[in-house]
């Protein structure tokens, strides 16, 4: 099937098998390997991206379902500079091995949108769908709090 998808501002038209997962399309067809795969049951959140301004687990979406959609991946979150969420993860040591990090950052940016004063409990609940095995979440929560304040509800 032929699909047309805009990713990080660039529009791509490709032929794909209908069963192609969006995450495989991003990684294997477009070479955007920043989006990682951590499970096969939509539990871990490593593959989270933004699709038409919502965060989605890209292993749970077929590429054909994203036909006509506007996607942002970790590579396109900030063009050349760092998004406040990326900066906050760096500042607060919110990552160790880095594998869950792109998905965690993509989830967190949507989580705090419109909620600059988000509470610790809200952050913890909101990140339930993203598993990190390294950090114990403590510094991730701090990073998200910092970024939420800096983003001021954007």
């Amino acid at each position: 099937m032929q699909i047309t998808i805009t990713v990080n501002g660039t529009t791509h038209t490709r032929d794909v098998e209908p069963r192609t997962l969006l995450v495989d399309f991003l990684r294997d067809h477009l070479g955007l390997t920043g989006t990682n795969i951590g499970c096969d049951t939509s539990q871990c959140g490593a593959c989270t991206i933004h699709m038409d301004s919502q965060s989605v687990k890209s292993c749970t979406v077929l590429a054909v379902q994203a036909d006509g959609a506007d996607l942002t991946t970790i590579e396109g979150l900030a063009n050349g500079s760092l998004h406040p969420m990326q900066q906050a993860f760096w500042d607060n040591h919110g990552l160790q091995c880095g594998y869950c990090t792109p998905g965690m950052i993509m989830s967190a940016t949507k989580l705090v949108e419109g909620n600059p004063g988000i509470s610790e409990a809200e952050i913890r609940h909101g990140l339930e769908g993203n598993i990190c095995r390294c950090t114990g979440y403590q510094n991730i929560v701090k990073a998200v709090q910092q970024a939420a304040g800096e983003m001021g509800g954007d």
Partner: peptide, 22 residues
């Protein structure tokens, strides 16, 4: 000291084996 590894990870440029294409 902030980690020198982090810029590549937070921007999706980690060099994991699964990303390798030959």
């Amino acid at each position: 000291v902030k980690r020198v590894e982090d810029p590549r990870f937070i921007q999706g440029r980690g060099k994991y084996v699964a990303n390798l294409k030959l």
